[in-house]
Structure formats: C-alpha cells, structure tokens
Design a protein around this nucleic acid. Structure first.
Lengths: 148, 148
DNA sequence: TATAATTAAATTGTAAGCAATTTAATTTAT
DNA sequence: ATAAATTAAATTGCTTACAATTTAATTATA
C-alpha cells in the first residue's frame, strides 16, 4: 500500500464502467449492423417506440444527450425514413420528433436483439439486478434530473 | 407485461451503463480541466505512471483502446511533454511510450482527483465493491483478453 | 408595447472511438 | 534466400459526444 495506489487503473471504479459500456456497445454492433443502425440511433428509437412523439429536449432527458449530439442522429434517422422532424405549430422553437410507420415496423424486426445481447453478458439474474439498481442509483445521484 | 417490454429503455442493462459512464466522465471534467487533461489522456497516464514504459499495443490492452484511438491521444500527450514516443531499436514496428519527468510530476498534482470524484458518487462502500466486481466480471467475459 | 431575458435547436470546434485499410518491419514457410 | 504471412502503428472515414456559441421564437418585464 502506498500513496499513489489511488491512481492505479485497477483501483478505479469509473474505468471498468467506461470500458464495460464500450465493450457492451460493441456486442450490439453486429446485430444492429443488420438493420444499419448505430447504438445511439437504436436507443433513440427505443424512446420513440414507447412515446411516439416528443421534442428534442425531452428526448435528450431520457437519453442523457444534448441537441448537439441528437440533431445529427435525428437527421440520420429521418433520412432513413424512421422518424419525422416537424416544428411545432404552437411553439416553433420546438421540434416534434415522431416515429413513422417504417420506424414502428422496425420494432418487430429488432425484438430479438436484447435477448441475444443478454446471452453474451455472463451474469446471474441476481447480479444483473444488483448492477441495474446500483447504476441507476449513481445515475440519479449524479444528474438529479430524473426523466421519469 | 407485453412482448415489446424488452425494447423499453428502462428495461435495458446496457443503457444505464452507457449513460452512467458518460456522466461520471463529466464529473472528472472540471478536475481534469485544471491540468488540461481529458479523461482518455488521464487514464493513459495512469497506466504509464504504473509501468513507465510500454508499447501502443500493450497500452491498448490495458485501456481497451486500439491504435486508431491511441495514436492521436499519445501525440497530444507528447506535445504536452508528458510522454516520449520512440521506435524500438530491436523491432521498429513497436513504438515505445515512456513517461517523462514532467509526466511523472503530474502524478503528485492529480492525486486528489480520485477522492474528489469519489465523493460525488453516492454509493456505500459495499455497493461500490459489488459494482466493481460485477463490472469486471462482465468486462472479462466479454473480452476474454485479460490484460493482467 | 418595446426591451430584456429565456428557451429550444442548430452550429462550431475539438476529442474520442472504431472498423477497415495502409504502410513498414519482421517472421514463417517454401 | 525469396515469397508469403503476420504484426504494430498509422491513417481514413464516419459517428458520437459535448462545451460553447448562435439563431430564432417566445415569454417576462419595464
């Protein structure tokens, strides 16, 4: 034990979080590639499958992303025909994002992905639950802006 | 409960991992800004503080990053005078990365950062341990190339 | 009502991050 | 010894990600 142990990579909690997140996103890749989707596009669609209409700000709260990241993602999804971007009539500052018919149809096609990815993540049910719980505890304590 | 519940954002395990990792990196930002370091530069230095010499490939194994990501990061750290990049004499394909005196001096200056960040992450000791253990379990099961 | 403040998206600039390819050096096989 | 295969880094092209700024619309205030 010495003073600089706290600066060793193996003693960090953030590092495995950072590395793990990246590695799991890589597991999604081959499955998402089949639908020409990136992980960011996929989680964006997830929110829209559930809510089907929403402005950029709200979407960003769910996804922990800002307009700087979302604008190009949404333009891409629009160009693929999965969403529509329309200024709100009542307040032109708001951009209403809505899922299209094609966007909704995708839902049926990707439904196997969560299970397939889940099988690659070698965790007991119990551990997965713990992980989920702890991650949201951290997330909420860091942001204090719970989307729900 | 319906068929598409598995496609709801709140039922994903990867999403809070992804979001949490990003949010924690943001917590580092103000502390790292003081030293004009990014998170990636910081964890790169961590490995070099511990090993002080290493080639790009090895470094990448510790950090879960490839040369495409590391090359520009290392050039940046070199331009700041924290590391040196030298081709190996015995095998010119290898680029030896070594920490400089200035690079080592930084260690003393950033030593408070882990504690400061730790205080922002609202977890019990027990939970932090669980999180750490589970994350490495996933990480190792996903990559199968344990750096240690 | 005119002005100021606020708000939502978009834009700009910079740094990751990664797949795929390229380049150069080294090793293996013929 | 030469050709083929392998290896390490660098490069290319594309997508995120985010801080900071800008633009345009709306709301609050003087």
């Amino acid at each position: 034990m010495e003073v600089y142990d706290c600066l060793k990579l193996e003693n960090q909690l953030c590092f495995p979080l950072y590395a793990c997140a990246k590695e799991i996103v890589k597991v999604y890749k081959p499955y998402l590639d089949q639908f020409d989707l990136t992980y960011t596009q996929y989680i964006t669609l997830m929110v829209l499958w559930e809510h089907n209409e929403m402005n950029v700000k709200e979407l960003g709260k769910y996804l922990y992303l800002d307009s700087g990241t979302l604008t190009p993602v949404l333009k891409k999804l629009e160009s693929k025909g999965y969403i529509e971007r329309k200024r709100s009539k009542t307040d032109e500052r708001n951009l209403r994002i809505q899922i299209t018919e094609n966007g909704n149809a995708l839902k049926k096609q990707v439904i196997e992905i969560p299970q397939k990815v889940g099988r690659c993540v070698n965790l007991e049910e119990e551990e997965a639950m713990q992980l989920y719980k702890i991650l949201y505890k951290v997330l909420h304590s860091l942001t204090l802006e719970k989307p729900h």
